[in-house]
Amino acid sequence: METLITVLVGLLVTVAVYLLLSRNLIRVILGSAVLSHAAHLLLMTMGSGLKKGSAPLLGENAASYVDALPQALILTAIVISFAVTAFLLVLAYRTYKKTGTDDLYALRGFDDE
């Protein structure tokens, strides 16, 4: 299972890199979102493996409990990446309204001052 998830992470990173390298601003943002999901999956898989014990609750009588820390980390990271992606989307919209383009080639350099 871990191997499968790792391959999936690799696939997500490939997609994300492809999107990040494109000229379209929206694609870049989508790429950054996919990239963060790859990181979250990797965090879960790297942590202590996927589900090996029962949920870390006191009521559950189990021999082993799963490590809860990676999930706490992922939760925090998801919130952060949500905020950053939301900000980037607004930024892209503002930039589009101001410059009339979402092509990154047209946006390089500045000459208005």
């Binding site: 990040l20 990239l35 790297m46 990676p70 980037l88 930039t95 410059t99």
Partner: peptide, 27 residues
């Protein structure tokens, strides 16, 4: 606006590396 797109994107990327580094280190 134009400069901040670069700034935000590069920082998103470096934060991603940070997260990946943390994942590997924790693993």
């Amino acid at each position: 606006l134009v400069e901040s797109i670069k700034y935000v994107t590069i920082n998103v990327l470096s934060s991603w590396f940070f997260l990946i580094g943390i994942a590997y280190l924790y693993g």
